[in-house]
Design a protein around this nucleic acid. Sequence first.
DNA 1: CCTGCACATTAAGATTTCGTTAAGACACCA
DNA 2: TGGTGTCTTAACGAAATCTTAATGTGCAGG
Lengths: 230, 230
Amino acid sequence: MSEFKILIVEDDKSIMNLISITLKINGYTYLSADCGKDGVALCASHHPDLILLDLGLPDMDGIEVIRTIRTWANTPIVVISARGEDKDKIDALDSGADDYLTKPFSVAELLARIRAVQRRLQYSRNDSLEESVFENGDLKIDYASSLVTMNGTELHLTPIEYKLLILLAKNVGKVLTHSYIIDRIWGNGIDSDIVSLRVYMAGLRKKLKQGQNSSLIQTHVGIGYQMIRI
Amino acid sequence: MSEFKILIVEDDKSIMNLISITLKINGYTYLSADCGKDGVALCASHHPDLILLDLGLPDMDGIEVIRTIRTWANTPIVVISARGEDKDKIDALDSGADDYLTKPFSVAELLARIRAVQRRLQYSRNDSLEESVFENGDLKIDYASSLVTMNGTELHLTPIEYKLLILLAKNVGKVLTHSYIIDRIWGNGIDSDIVSLRVYMAGLRKKLKQGQNSSLIQTHVGIGYQMIRI
DNA sequence: CCTGCACATTAAGATTTCGTTAAGACACCA
DNA sequence: TGGTGTCTTAACGAAATCTTAATGTGCAGG
């Protein structure tokens, strides 16, 4: 794995020391800032892979820092806070933070959170950031041009069928629940039961089944559906 | 590993002696109390890592002690009960005890139970933060994608079987009573009998037994089931 | 040695959930 | 307005799952 660069925004010197030493020992590269303004600037100029952000900063509210950064970057942000209150946690997460660490925290926990973010990052990279082309068996999806082909022949999918297929493809190997799928396709409105979903699945399968991947999409009775990786 | 502190709550002096000496020989630190009130107080003040609790105490019912402690702490509790107290044993487990030991017990068994709890503790620490993946022997459960594999081959579980497995896995090492399991699986509604539970256990074991971990799930006659950590 | 108890396992009927087809509703566009 | 394509709903046979009953096994007590 290439170098993983972490930006620490923290004004308490002893905690800054603890974190920076821990990161260094564990092979991470890091940048540091002791106030919100510098943190935002460093983030803009150095594009870190992860930000550790203390909420209690001298110049800006931590929430502000998150909002500012989120206007242009999706860099994962792990918040560190002395305040263990739920409200703060929710505010931070709602503003776009990815995870939350309450002081005092153990070094092991910090590293675990960082690994978790790395895993998530790696995962979503494989899923969305690459190629913009998805291939699985005879199925090929070009997200950029919204083109779906089986064995090279183009398929004509209706909007809902396409959404469904994308959803399954973005989660290959995962079992998606009925409610999750319905929520993602029809928005969180209450409507459209499972029955509709079944009809679309039938349509989709019919169109896909032009090859012999009859088993590309599997049913989990009582649970949902799953596209399996071939 | 740092020191492991065990609180013994037992009024029988000879058993207290046996246990304390055993623990000392095996490198554990221990505290002792000879009644429920003292036990609760010591637990509150000294934060032991494990509690060995005799159900038959002079001042309080053992169940009361468990309930009291459980209002603020998740400290593992291993119950010690005299023979013929099956009902009490079940009540204790339902109230939040983790395991039980029947008098007379061997020193080896006592130590084994303690080690089991230690293992479980260590595991849940590692697990609670991140990893939506559970592993035990050849069994692997990916909660996020609802995928269960044995030796790498995917298992197809029915909804109830899956729920059952998850319940056991989330409580590895802990003995779950029949009523607790039934309550968790079928909701607190009326009683789908123990008989049904047995049928599902049979089905689950059949599917799991594709490896040779025939003993992954153990039966506690008259009490319930337990997934053991391998 | 027999009996009773708790559990394991299998088989079969009852029930739920699925897949698929077809018909009507709706929106869009010429 | 009529036509086209898409969405939704209903219906029904098929498949999977759940439940119940029946039988088999091991163990403890009389």
